[in-house]
Design a binder for these strands. Sequence first.
DNA 1: TCCTCCCGCCAAGCA
DNA 2: TGCTTGGCGGGAGGA
Length: 820
Amino acid sequence: LKTPLKQAATSQLVLTERQPDCQPLTTPPKPKETPPADPWTPTSNLKMLISAASPEIRSREQRRQLSDSSSEVLQTKHCLQEHLLGDEYEKSQPSRKEKSLGLLCHKFLARYPDYPSPSQKSYICLDEVTEELHVERRRIYDIVNVLESLHMVSRLARNRYVWHGRHNLPQTLQALKKVGEENKYIQQIQMIKKREYEHEFDPDGERNEEMASSFGSSEQSEMSFVELPGVEFRAASVNGRKYKSLRVMSQKFVMLFLVSTPQIVSLEVAAKILIGEDQLEDLDKSKFKTKIRRLYDIANVLSSLKLIKKVHVTEERGRKPAFKWTGPEVLPNTQDTKLEATSTTSSPPISESITSKEQCSKALFPSKGKQSFTRHSSLIKLVKSIENDRRKIQSAPTSPVKISASTYQSLPVFPNTIAQFPAITKHQLEGQSKTAEEMQMKYALSSPEPVPKSEPSQQPALSQPLGVCPASHSSVSPVILPHLQSGVSYAIYLHPSQAHTVTTYSPGFMLQPLPCANVTGIKSNNSKVLNKITTEEGDIQRGLDEPTKSLAAEERPETKSETSQRCLKRSQALPETNLIKRRKSDEESLDTSLTFFPSGYLIPLTHCTHSNKAECSTKEKAGVCSLQHTAYSSPITGVIPMPASELKTVNIPAFHITPLNIMLSPNSIAAAPVLSNSCLNSSSTSSAPNPSSSALNFMLQHIGLIPAGVQIPANPVLQHMPVSSQSENISHSSGSTNVQEGKVIKFTFYSPINESNCLFSLQPSAPKEPQEPQAVTENFFRTPGGPNTEPALSANSDGTQRTSQGTLYIPQRKLEVSED
DNA sequence: TCCTCCCGCCAAGCA
DNA sequence: TGCTTGGCGGGAGGA
């Protein structure tokens, strides 16, 4: 055995095969498939060294090995090498590329039809595959794991899988997109890019330590696996490792594409998100590197599936490897697709008649393992608890009710930590992450906000109720999250290791992890936050029975206010040194606004739709913590003095808006390439009938509060109108162009948007510094007069402020995408 | 030099 | 206890 030598010619052939311009790749010719004669042995390295040291020895060794291997190859029906000598033999050796996972995946996929007949299942025997493809078993696992994440295969038994093909792919992608949207990956990407940008001003790394201490390691909390009904997940090890599984990584990676616009994701960003918190990048580079390695593995398989394609994104900070989604477009969540895939899959389809909780559970946890039973049991227990609490709250008056901390003490679901908030705060400030995270969870559970009025016949896209996942009381704490929009509900299971982390998410809820680090600016917030937690909880519960009217949203007035102030301060003209410092300071505060995302075991319960109460058992419904239509006079919204603005009319205060996330840096804008087509279209002309709506949607989509395909009219009645999310938003940018293959494309965002309803109109809520809104506008938005033109602020009729020009300009950004 | 990712060790856990 | 599964990171090929 010798070191595999370069095979330029064959490699090129293989490369050609791997880039077939979407032509189906055929199995490589047999000569190129010739495997190494021998498996690597423990002495192979020594042989390699000897071989490398002396060409003569190498040549002799080659011949000898060739002879030796020939017999084995013959035994294994691979005898080509037997007739090869010297260079020929060298050429026969597969190059590194020929052994790539992507090519191997091609071979693997070539064995099975894309759309197998549902009547006859295709089974995958790993032994056979490894033998026929002449690869290590380990490599097959890599492929199978990624395919499993897409539900193209499912594990049947030991050493045995079922091939589903692409039947499940549409449903899987839709589910992943939905989860990705709910996870606010767009925001995460924005945040990461913003930090990258700001890191240029703070290269000393000190900030990272602070962030790391603030967030701690929450990689585990990031892990979840999205299942489809009928496609069982039977990993060999159903605990522990599952949460770090390549499957989960693969799913999240795909999610990033599905929620991004354009659908290009750089490896770096993906790795950071997969790690959990990007602040760890510099502290643990090995972890980052490992993540990158895995992403390459995943990307290779996804590329073989023609779901993604490698490109390079060139930004100011350099050229980065990235991948572009080339798979099927995933339409906005619609209910009509939820069972489409399963109806054709070879796996047991979920009958729509299966709607009871028990049936859901059976379908989701068919295995006999302890885990399944435990989860099921705790699921019931949890929803019972929530149901009890919900019943209590529903019996209360419908007006906003301030729920005291003692209320929580009576909830078995919520340990008494609510009542211990002062202590928690103290611990939090002392860096006691566990307690802090517990409180984060509480806060996450208590952040609903109202939709004042909405069409009952409609199902607002924003009204996806929140599931509550306090996991500290049991090993696994499941909750069903109904999703009206798609009719797909999810059960989230918290892994025991995640119990201490903030894990809950709902589209309308911006979870606000309360930092445990000694961040100065946060201290003053905590008490207020705690107050708000206690007052908002009732809103969560009260909205249980009116989820379709709910607008999942959250407001954090204090944070918003302070953030706004910081934003304003930051935008003021300052000496550069001060600016940098301020950036650091701002970042701390911004970090505290970072959204955390769901963890655990996320399972869509497609057949348990929220709208069908008869089908969903009461207990299940109890697990739904939806939102309440809190009046504006609620103590929550009252925290921030808001003018009778248009924003208020459309319930903007319901959202926790962190405009800094979007506006602070040009990079963040580039990081949020979802330049809403509706926004840009309508805003590009002054005759747009409702620029406020456009701007509002633009911002809401940017911050992930609404999906890209949803629009909210800025009229008092909150509605949503799904629009195509597949519009090429880039093309709406001036001077932009769609990404083309094989070229370096530049597209520039210099997009005017009308500001009349823009989010920073909220800034006047900072009464102490009335002059600052001006600075904000100046800093983050450019008027047509030029980057330094100072727009004059004027009051709208509704009390909000806007620039005199009425038009905002996003700072110009460049993003180049090239494909290799 | 950096990117890419193959390779196989070895631990977890299943049968 | 052997085998399956898969996390993980060293390190080599390639650009």
